[in-house]
């Protein structure tokens, strides 16, 4: 700890004790700026402000409804269990897409660094194709390409929409994971390959014992970032008819005769749920990025 502190002071570039606290803070900020570029920095207070605004918004809508009409919050509380169930479905889809996409994507990423030109070329092509395709189009494509049921030995196995949606969303995840893996492997200095080779490690051993263990740290932040993006994209499944949160919200609103005063609070609630889920992930990603950046 003291070594790190000393290093920090060195970076701050001053010996005057009076200047040290300020200099240290400035050095910290400079380091962070280099890291996140000119992007505005996220702070937990931003999250709190946003959550407060949404609650306020719902409250205002409540106030606008006449005394004769049932309260906005009443309606929201009535539908909340169903909506949250839908949200759980979104999470489930995101988990499964991420799992499938990661598994296939890692293989594809390793294919991209294969020594065999055909493997390398085809992995690259698949990666680029799915990475540069709109997610919604991929979703439609999988939706209409796959049958709604399979018949295996006379048994009909249904193939529900949500599984198709999961596969559809796993495709872009796969392509992005592939690029994350390739990028991480490339970011390991070539000296690591050289020294492993000179110690008689073969390529496979080098990759799995030396290169990949070093990559995992570098891959986790972008991988988590991708997960947050995927979670937000799961609402796309509503367009193809999967009963996730967005679909259920629309149905709930329809059941309430699409009361104008309910639109904002209901969709606000959906936003709030996603925010509450994704924001901590974004914060944690940022924390990991900072931490690993300093060490490596």
């Amino acid at each position: 700890m003291s070594a790190r502190r000393r290093m920090r002071l060195d970076n701050a570039g001053t010996d005057l004790p009076v200047l040290l606290p300020g200099a240290e803070r400035l050095a910290d900020r400079a380091r962070r700026d280099r890291l996140v570029g000119t992007m505005p920095r996220l702070h937990w207070t931003h999250g709190a402000v946003l959550a407060g605004l949404i609650v306020l918004w719902a409250g205002m809508a409540e106030a606008q409804t006449g005394a004769a009409e049932p309260g906005v919050f009443d309606a929201l509380f009535r539908w909340m269990p169903l909506l949250l169930e839908g949200f759980g479905f979104n999470i489930l889809i995101s988990f499964m897409s991420m799992a499938i996409g990661t598994a296939v994507g890692v293989a594809l990423g390793l294919g991209q660094i294969s020594l065999l030109a055909p493997v390398r070329g085809s992995s690259w092509l698949v990666t680029q194709f799915f990475r540069n395709a709109p997610w919604l189009v991929l979703l439609f494509f999988v939706m209409f390409m796959m049958p709604f049921e399979f018949v295996v030995f006379g048994t009909v196995i249904p193939f529900p929409d949500w599984i198709k949606a999961t596969i559809g969303l796993a495709l872009p995840v796969m392509a992005n994971v592939s690029e994350i893996v390739r990028g991480a492997v490339m970011s390991v200095p070539s000296g690591q390959w050289e020294s492993s080779e000179s110690l008689a490690f073969n390529r496979r051993q080098t990759l799995f014992m030396i290169i990949l263990p070093q990559c995992i740290k570098r891959m986790i932040p972008p991988w988590m970032n991708l997960y947050a993006i995927l979670t937000m994209a799961t609402v796309l499944a509503s367009i193809v008819g999967v009963s996730e949160m967005m679909t259920l919200t629309r149905r709930a609103l329809a059941a309430e005769q699409n009361a104008f005063t309910l639109l904002v609070p209901f969709y606000g609630f959906v936003l709030l749920c996603f925010f509450a889920y994704c924001y901590p992930i974004a914060r944690f990603t940022l924390y990991l990025e900072r931490r690993y950046h300093v060490i490596t």
Binding site: P189, G191, E194, S195, E197, S198, A200, P213
Partner: peptide, 17 residues
């Protein structure tokens, strides 16, 4: 061959993990 010949590099290239 590589059992017979050891090599040390300018950038050390130790395995950081």
């Amino acid at each position: 061959l590589r059992k017979k010949v050891g090599m040390v590099f300018q950038q050390y290239n130790l395995f950081p993990h």
